[in-house]
Design a protein around this nucleic acid. Structure first.
Length: 281
DNA sequence: CATTGTTCCTGTCGGC
DNA sequence: TGCCGACAGGAACAAT
């Protein structure tokens, strides 16, 4: 499912297709995604030029002329499928192609989301920071303000496992289940450890692991998991670099504990956690 | 207030 | 082969 690196990959893929382009047609084919789409959604987008595309946490922010911003979240099965102009006949629309954008270059971008956990909203630019979905978000893990001291302060007093704390978008914005598992593994930090005990050196190491794993995933073009497709139709490759996620029963790649324990799975607040008990303390 | 549990949705997969 | 239940998961919301 799209976490920060996948969303970043989608944003980078969409930029050359959308930035500077006018939306000549927008078609809405369902009433609601995760939430009902705003009234007049397609009409309010049609004819507008795209100024720029940015990412905040797992949200895609499409800045449009007229001081409007299209906020998109891919949920867990959302994809942006590009049908390029001049590449022969377009494929027929699929069942879960919910929103269809067409540009003045003739490209078509289809938002497809089988599970409809995705969401879209259209708001005035000056309301972005106050938007319900965005206002509570913590810092960007790849931004300047995210570091060991920040993380230690954010975790101080948190009586919850570190796994759950890192999934909390108020602590740090953009991590999901996969990259939390991976970052904890690389930091040698047990997913069960109480968050408030991650201080000083541990927090430093964890912050660095989070940044490293995200940067590596972005460099690999995001991870592909079943229904995730990169914006340009190519698949990301980072899933091959997962150390622990989805690898229950396999040997731990980073230490020689493989024979005795290997990678285990446990369920924390309803989510699978993959970890190596020998390496993560 | 802090934290945990539930819910939304549908495709996929394992077991019988 | 076909059916059925379990599972996947982001984030809002409800419950504790």
């Amino acid at each position: 499912m799209p976490e920060l690196p996948e969303v970043e990959t989608v944003v980078r893929g969409l930029r050359p297709k959308l930035e500077g382009r006018r939306l000549t047609s927008v078609v809405q084919r369902c009433r609601a995604l995760r939430f009902p789409l705003p009234r007049d959604f397609a009409n309010r987008l049609t004819g507008r030029r795209v100024i720029s595309i940015a990412r905040r946490a797992k949200y895609i922010l499409v800045h449009l002329e007229g001081e409007q911003v299209l906020i998109c979240h891919l949920g867990m099965s959302g994809r942006m499928v590009v049908e390029q102009a001049g590449k022969g006949p377009r494929r027929p629309l699929e069942k879960h192609d919910h929103i269809i954008f067409e540009t003045d270059r003739g490209d078509e971008i289809r938002f497809n989301d089988a599970r409809r956990f995705g969401m879209m909203d259209l708001v005035a630019a000056d309301q972005i920071s106050a938007h319900k979905l965005l206002k509570g978000l913590g810092p960007e893990p790849l931004g300047n303000s995210f570091n060991g001291p920040y993380l230690a302060a954010a975790l101080k007093g948190k009586r919850t496992p570190i796994k759950a704390a890192l999934l909390d978008q108020k602590v740090v914005a953009g991590l999901g289940n996969i990259y939390v598992c991976e970052a904890l593994y690389h930091a040698g930090c047990s997913p069960r450890r109480q968050a408030f005990t991650v201080q000083c050196g541990r927090a430093e190491k964890l912050a660095r692991s989070i940044r490293d794993v995200l940067n590596r995933a972005i460099a690999a073009g995001g991870s592909s998991l079943r229904d995730y497709v990169q914006a340009d139709g190519e698949l990301g490759y980072f899933q091959h670099d997962w150390a622990v996620y989805g690898r229950e029963g396999e040997a731990c790649p980073g230490c020689d504990c493989g024979q005795t324990s290997g990678i285990r799975r446990l369920v924390q607040s309803g989510r699978s956690t993959f970890y190596c008990s020998a390496r993560q303390r």
